[in-house]
């Protein structure tokens, strides 16, 4: 499988990149590390005329601390993210999540920007052109059928980015730059919930992700990422759980965010369980019951590997482990 014919452009400035995007219209794709896009191109999941590489824009490589937050350029590789001392100290869950993506070879090319913008995946979609020719076009490929649910309702490709739940749990904001100017939004808002066009960029907005801002958590806030995959390299997560927890001096839950990846069309925020936890005294019983409750909030789909029941069971387990670990040092019960 060869790459389609393309023209490669590598602008030196954000504005230049935006102008190119404007000129090319829908016939261009932006490439960051390329670990996902290169395969998609070979499989003809995308056939842009132009590829716009961002490696020559210097500020896209920054890792800096400013105004109580960490600011990351989108072109930092996952390897750079996981080995940065600043991130290890201030955002350990992000460092850990970056360390668990794909394989070491992939991490030395894949970027945080690419992970934030990662397309959703499906076993009927992420296949070669020949493979897909054996059946009706699905939603994501431009058709109007979902082979997963065998229904015409909607696309069900899964959101599987590892870093995103952690970033959202940390309360990250992102900067999107367009020709009209820059806007800052919370990362949560970037995702559409539509598996076909899972984020604003893939949904057609002519913007570039230029920065990821993560407020440095206060001392008492603890964040963790728990990932589950059968092989501990190469594979995407079956489910990933990010938790950030703020316990007060009385061991009560002042604030908590629980986010999952791998089990929906977008990062899934666990809301009902959060309500159950807020203001509650942190103990093992509470954690167990909430974990089980939380896993009822997701609707995993059958894959070749697992049934929804199995995924829910694992989600429940990983949520519990994440909660236990997050509550660990502060929580008096642990």
């Amino acid at each position: 499988m060869h790459l389609p014919d393309i023209v490669y452009l590598s602008p030196n400035k954000t504005t230049e990149a935006l102008e190119v995007i404007e000129d090319c219209g829908n016939s261009c794709s932006v490439i960051a590390g390329g670990t996902d896009l290169m395969v998609a191109l070979k499989q003809r999941l995308q056939t842009p005329k132009y590829l716009i590489g961002l490696e020559n824009i210097p500020e896209f490589k920054k890792i800096e601390e400013k105004d109580e937050s960490i600011r990351l350029g989108p072109m930092n590789t996952l390897d750079e993210i996981s080995s940065s001392d600043l991130i290890k100290t201030k955002l350990p869950a992000l460092s850990q999540a970056a360390r668990e993506v794909g394989s070491p070879l992939l991490r030395s090319q894949a970027t945080i920007g690419g992970n934030v913008c990662l397309n959703t995946r499906c076993r009927f979609y992420n296949q070669s052109q020949f493979w897909r020719s054996t059946r009706e076009k699905c939603y994501k490929a431009g058709g109007s059928y979902c082979h997963v649910t065998k229904q015409k309702e909607k696309c069900n490709a899964a959101f599987v980015a590892d870093l995103v739940p952690v970033l959202i749990a940390y309360g990250a904001n992102i900067k999107l730059a367009g020709l009209a100017g820059e806007k800052m939004l919370s990362l949560k808002e970037f995702y559409t919930g539509d598996s076909c066009f899972p984020n604003q960029i893939l949904n057609g907005d002519r913007v570039i992700l230029t920065e990821i801002d993560i407020p440095i958590p206060k001392n008492n806030i603890r964040s963790v990422y728990k990932k589950f995959r059968f092989r501990r390299s190469i594979d995407f997560p079956l489910v990933g759980v990010a938790v950030s927890l703020d316990l007060d001096e009385n061991n009560r839950c002042r604030d908590i965010n629980i986010l999952l990846t791998g089990v929906g069309s977008a990062p899934v925020e666990i809301k009902k369980a959060k309500k159950e936890l807020l203001g509650q005294r942190w103990d093992d019983e509470l954690v167990s019951s909430v974990a089980s409750l939380a896993s009822q909030e997701i609707r995993p789909l059958k894959t070749n590997l697992v049934s929804p029941r199995y995924t829910r069971e694992i989600a429940s387990l990983k949520i519990k482990e994440a909660l236990q670990e997050a509550g660990g040092k502060n929580g008096k019960n642990y």
Partner: peptide
């Protein structure tokens, strides 16, 4: 090795 880091050369555009 790209600047000392191991990478998959099949995922790397030569122009880059």
């Amino acid at each position: 090795l790209l600047d000392g880091k191991p990478i998959n050369s099949c995922l790397t555009l030569a122009v880059r």
